[in-house]
Design a protein around this nucleic acid. Structure first.
Lengths: 166, 166
DNA sequence: ATTGATAGTTTACATTGCCTACTATCGGTA
DNA sequence: TACCGATAGTAGGCAATGTAAACTATCAAT
């Protein structure tokens, strides 16, 4: 809290703020959905649900969610182990695994959607419709700008600490 | 890319976008500073520099950067090992370690500042002054909103993959 | 039949946040 | 003076993830 502090927030990497927001967001989301027997990878379920029935393979999930394919294997394993999805080989291209939702997944997806919609709203509470629109546009712009920068590979890790569940 | 896809971006957790931005940002920052013999924890150096000479302890760093104190110990160890900072016990409170920059740190800090300022600018390229101001305000608002949500503890991990350096 | 590309898996490594437990020290108080 | 709670920092361990490298299986084209 010294004289120079006023400019500190601008001197620090902008990426730090995004990291903090991510932590806060997923901390809250996990809390909202703590009664489920999974505590992560909700996005994967949503993306599978969104994709054409039976046309979702792991590569598609990886690319769309920006998760590398070896991590995706583990995440799929996790969700398979919990009984929310299953792998089905595609007879038209036997290299592929089509990822399918189970009944169990369909049952909990409404709750997941509610939690996410609710949290997205709460997070942006205080912004009016046009501000919200602009904010999303800004995020897209930042991502676009940063995607064109040369970069090292960087790891992002998201996990619940007290994982009594397995 | 099916009919439902149009709404997909709104159905996914907002936190995902922040995670992506964080990865892109730090990937680019690490790249920009790859000639240095450290590849992370630049924020710590900046915060030490910003704080009053000799009044920066680990607790302060942890709180300000939202990093838990056991992780901070390891980060400090890393920077000490690289010769950028040193721990000095405070005679007025011998529990404390005052963290001080070395000459080596002072020499590279200008380069770090340049890289961060440059990247912050490039990331927000396309926003005019008032839009930029609003965007930063929005980020603060989101953080404020999310901080009030009940939450689980969540882990964020940032690391360079190919760490040939040690 | 060979060759190159693609989908997915496995293993290993490094790092981080969190937890628990611990030491040392400070400050107040009985 | 002696105790007690709080604070600063450390140590060890766990779980999870991105990445790399090496590998299998399959496809598509020549």
């Amino acid at each position: 809290m010294n004289a120079k502090t006023r400019k500190l927030s601008q001197s620090l990497p902008l990426g730090r703020r995004f990291g903090l927001l991510m932590r806060l967001y997923f901390g809250a989301l996990t809390k909202k959905l703590e009664q489920l027997d999974i505590d992560r990878h909700f996005s994967i379920l949503i993306l599978i649900e969104d994709s054409e029935e039976g046309f979702c393979n792991q590569q598609y999930l990886s690319n769309t969610l920006n998760i590398d394919k070896t991590s995706m294997v583990r995440m799929i394993d996790y969700l398979v182990g919990k009984g929310y999805i299953r792998r089905a080989s595609n007879p038209e291209d036997r290299r592929e695994h089509r990822i399918l939702l189970t009944e169990k997944a369909h049952r909990i997806l409404p709750r997941i959607h509610r939690a996410i919609n609710d949290l997205n709203s709460k997070a942006t509470n205080g912004l009016n419709t046009s501000q919200l629109k602009q904010f999303y546009k800004d995020l897209d712009l930042l991502a676009e700008n940063l995607a064109h920068e040369p970069r090292h590979t960087i790891i992002m890790n998201l996990e619940k600490a007290k994982s009594t569940r397995k």
